[in-house]
């Protein structure tokens, strides 16, 4: 099982609903976020192009954050999800420094936090909160090993990219372009 997510940059409108939904679902304290939205624009008026991406932890298959964690708090969980065990994390910040995507943040309670792919939901057959809420339905989630999962199907159909492939992290968050 390899969980993955794909975000359709052609449909995403940057509304940031995914961010609020994650915040309420996962009790992310105000002032922090596990996901965020980036908008890039290029060209000059009126020849313009825009790309909007909802970003979060990439659940890298080759994850530097897991490698550098001195306690094993950051670990690969079932389906390749990368999680932090709160009661094993010493808050050293090494994983934060190691993530090329700046996907982690220090939770005010001391441990390090980041996107969990909403394990508590997906293990109960529910989609991640951000995917469930997105009004443009542009977040696809599922198992790459299952050819019929939403994410496999959409990746078959569409062109996609990952962010900073040159960092060699092998991300599992795809952007449909």
């Amino acid at each position: 099982m390899r969980y993955a997510m794909a975000v359709d940059t052609k449909k995403c409108v940057g509304c940031s609903d995914c961010v609020v939904a994650c915040q309420t679902e996962n009790n992310v304290p105000i002032g922090f976020c596990r996901d965020w939205v980036v908008e890039t624009m290029a060209g000059s008026y009126p020849q313009l192009e825009i790309e909007i991406r909802s970003e979060r932890c990439n659940h890298c298959a080759n994850a530097p954050c897991v490698r550098c964690c001195p306690t094993g708090a950051s670990h690969f969980d079932t389906g390749g999800i990368i999680l932090v065990k709160q009661n094993k994390c010493i808050g050293c910040g090494a994983c934060i420094a190691s993530c090329p995507y700046d996907a982690r943040y220090p939770h005010p309670d001391g441990y390090v936090d980041k996107c969990t792919f909403c394990v508590q939901r997906i293990r109960n057959g529910m989609p991640p909160a951000c995917a469930a809420v997105c009004p443009t339905k542009c977040i696809y989630f599922g198992d790459l090993d299952d050819p019929n999962s939403d994410v496999s199907l959409v990746l078959k159909k569409r062109k996609f990219k990952t962010l900073i492939p040159e960092a060699g992290t092998d991300p599992k968050l795809y952007f449909l372009i």
Binding site: S16, V19, G31, E39, T40, M41, S44, A97, P106
Partner: peptide
């Protein structure tokens, strides 16, 4: 011109605007 923005805002303490 190129423009790149966090439209959702992003001010994770000690991570934004740059790692600290």
């Amino acid at each position: 011109m190129k423009e790149e923005l966090f439209v959702s805002g992003r001010i994770n303490h000690l991570v934004d605007p740059y790692l600290n």
